[in-house]
Amino acid sequence: MNTLIKMVASVSILAFAPTQVLAQEDTLTEAPSPNGSVKLSGDVMAVKVIADDTGAERTELVKPDLIVPGDRLVFGTDYANEGAEAVTDFVVTNPLPSAVRLASDADAGLTVSVDDGASWGMLSSLSITEDDGSVRSATHADVTHVRWTIASIAPGASGRLEYPAIIR
């Protein structure tokens, strides 16, 4: 942990130079892996329906140049074990940005939380207690976090984790 790089100044990027945060720029530069063994790299793509000359529609992953409420995004995280040792108990936790909701066609087996990470499970097993005390089943819009657990990553192995989201 003593090699952890702390660049707290990054907060001020938003505050003082907002033009640097353009929607057109997906940010793929990797975070240096603190221990040199595992690397996490996040990215985001927009899902656009594109009609070809014949009028047939297909979906395509495009850079999120232009996104508005209702649009679909795919958040991805690439991981790679670049060390010489196997990595175990690998758990990736991803809080959902508050401006999006989990898409309803997300993997039903995905482990999610609807209470800011306090409890976890498949969405179908979770419930929400309303202010008036009534309890209802949790929906995709209630999801606050998603989580993936990988028991072991062999040296040199890598993979990708994704979740689809809709802009609220």
Binding site: N35, L73, E85, T88
Partner: peptide
């Protein structure tokens, strides 16, 4: 991500991706 590379639990974080709603 949290994991164990043989010398105890560790935590790392990905880069933050930012998109702006148009």
């Amino acid at each position: 991500a949290t994991f164990d590379a043989g010398d105890g639990p560790q935590t790392i974080e990905s880069n933050t991706v930012v998109v702006r709603v148009d």
